[in-house]
């Protein structure tokens, strides 16, 4: 994945520049942590890289495809087939069981048959140690379990890129460590590219590369208190 001079300006009476001229090259299978103080534009950059938001200017190549100029539906199709998201708050559909939540993207993509979707969803959840919780609804699970369901859902359509926004921000230490290991494993063992935004130095230390963002710009000199970049 490659980004060239990405700029995102929020149009308003006084326009706010969220992301200012960022260029970055990310290899397949790389685990990247985007760091920086609050309000530095980390999440905005993640939304741009995750095709949730369109840049005001600049280009973005994903899997060798230039995505600039794609309309909303085309971007949605790329997200469905190639990207997976994990957010700070679990963001599962409250009325659906864990299993149904994981099945949703597969049903929408419609590539697998119904029994295959069922099998794959069960396998994804079992692999993340949720075999006994598959039929529970989100409000019947712990924060760590919900976050693992969210990861399973992000993996549903076998994406090339996983984007995570503060995936451990809301978890206790043990769960956070668990999620960290899972994401690390995805990059190392399954060759998935993982981009995360994090405040957590321990989490960031597990990444292959750390990128710091200050006021919407990449800052190679910025150092998170307590650790070296």
């Amino acid at each position: 994945m490659k980004a060239n001079n990405l700029v995102r300006v929020l149009p308003a009476t006084i326009p706010v520049t969220l992301v200012n001229d960022i260029s970055i090259d990310i290899q397949r299978g790389e685990f990247i942590a985007i760091m920086g103080p609050s309000g530095s534009g980390k999440s905005s950059l993640l939304y741009l890289l995750g095709l949730l938001d369109a840049p005001t200017s600049g280009q973005l190549w994903l899997d060798g495809v230039d995505t600039s100029g794609f309309d909303e539906d085309a971007l949605a199709d790329v997200r469905l087939a190639k990207l997976g998201f994990v957010f700070q708050f679990h963001f599962l559909l409250a009325e659906f069981s864990a299993l149904d939540n994981v099945k949703l993207p597969m049903i929408r993509l419609g590539k697998l048959s119904t029994p295959d979707i069922d099998l794959r969803a069960q396998k994804l959840l079992s692999d993340l140690g949720l075999a006994e919780h598959m039929l529970k609804r989100p409000d019947q699970m712990s924060g760590g379990q919900r976050q693992r369901v969210a990861i399973a859902r992000a993996l549903a359509n076998d994406p090339v890129l996983i984007l995570a926004d503060e995936p451990t921000g809301n978890l206790d230490t043990a769960s956070a460590a668990n999620v960290r290991q899972i994401l690390r494993g995805l990059a190392t063992q399954q060759g998935k590219t993982v981009i995360t935004v994090t405040h957590d130095p321990v989490f960031a230390s597990a990444a292959d590369r750390r990128v710091a963002l200050v006021d919407g710009k990449l800052d190679p000199h910025w150092v998170l208190p307590g650790m070296a970049v």
Binding site: D73, V78, P105
Partner: peptide, 16 residues
């Protein structure tokens, strides 16, 4: 709204 945001981030179209 939150569910809609989730579904859209997953790749659901406005039409869906």
């Amino acid at each position: 709204h939150r569910d809609i945001a989730i579904l859209k981030s997953m790749g659901f179209h406005a039409r869906d």
